[in-house]
């Protein structure tokens, strides 16, 4: 009997519910924390980013129009699927981040719990962020939160970091383009496989692997991106991105000081960062 041929995974992008290669044909080597070869990942170009934005825009109508209850269910479903792949994520986390299996297990558990935590928020956000307002006039005046639109997310390192930035963006009805830098490409692509099988409509989350430094300026200046999360952008680039984002008055989320401890229970800052407020003046007694 001859030895089995190794069946290696091809790491591709995740755009519009599909797994294309980079339009540029580029790839880069992902190494472990000790420098060992792990995989070749697709190296996304600015045109992939543009395609991802188009896909996210296309998906926005349907996703933002879905009921909060439905969005919550789908997030919970993502958590379920992640749970099913627990062992794979632990192995990948051990390989990429060089942590112990025990620590990796904690991180994956936390990522799953994070999804469940945000899933619960889906139908509660409007009660917390919305209000009926006392006004000096014959009006019933109320405000409700609405999703901002297409959000570019510069993701931090690791699976837990990824989940912690994606979940709060999509649970309120936004769609997103996520840039996973460096070795985060590996958990990002595996996460994309989870998303693709979780009833999440294609295009709601689009994942680009490559260099944040290359893609961030293009997404920051893109006129069809409504908000940008600069969490994973290196310090020296952030100011330029904020400046570019001003052109179409993008919402900018940049945690200061930079977030590092992803294991801590989150607050609602990320959840509230990508919402717009719609206020309705309804005449009474007319």
């Amino acid at each position: 009997m001859s030895e089995r041929l190794a069946v290696r995974k091809t790491y591709k992008l995740y755009i519009g519910g599909k797994f294309p290669r980079s339009e540029s044909g580029r790839s880069y080597v992902v190494t472990s924390s000790t420098g060992d070869f792990l995989a070749n990942a697709a190296h996304a170009s600015r045109k992939d980013a543009r395609d991802a934005v188009s896909a996210a825009r296309k998906a926005f109508g349907g996703w933002s129009g879905a009921t909060a209850y439905n969005r919550g269910q789908i997030l919970y479903r993502i958590a379920e699927m992640l749970e099913g792949r627990h062992a794979q994520f632990v192995a990948e986390t051990v390989a990429a981040e060089g942590v112990s299996a025990e620590r990796a297990g904690e991180l994956v558990d936390a990522a799953i719990d994070r999804l469940v935590w945000y899933a619960g928020w889906s139908d509660k956000v409007s009660a917390v962020a919305g209000s009926s307002n006392p006004v000096a006039g014959p009006y019933f005046n109320f405000s409700t939160p609405e999703p901002t639109g297409v959000v570019a997310v510069m993701a931090p390192q690791g699976l837990l970091g990824l989940v912690s930035v994606i979940a709060p963006v999509i649970v309120t009805g936004n769609t997103c383009v996520v840039v996973a830098d460096g070795r985060t490409a590996l958990p990002a692509v595996t996460l994309a496989e989870v998303l693709a099988t979780s009833d999440l409509p294609g295009g709601v989350v689009n994942i680009l692997t490559g260099q944040a430094a290359e893609l961030a300026p293009w997404l920051a200046s893109h006129m069809d991106v409504n908000a940008i999360d600069l969490t994973g952008v290196p310090e020296h680039l952030a100011a330029a991105c904020e400046e570019a984002a001003a052109e179409n008055l993008k919402r900018v989320f940049r945690p200061l000081p930079p977030a590092t401890d992803w294991l801590a229970t989150p607050d609602t800052k990320r959840l509230m960062a990508f919402l717009e407020t719609k206020t309705v003046w309804h005449p009474v007694g007319m």
Binding site: W218, S221, M223, D224, V225, N248
Partner: peptide, 9 residues
């Protein structure tokens, strides 16, 4: 302009 345009505009 060197930046991607959006249909909103």
């Amino acid at each position: 302009t060197g930046r991607y345009a959006g249909p909103d505009h």
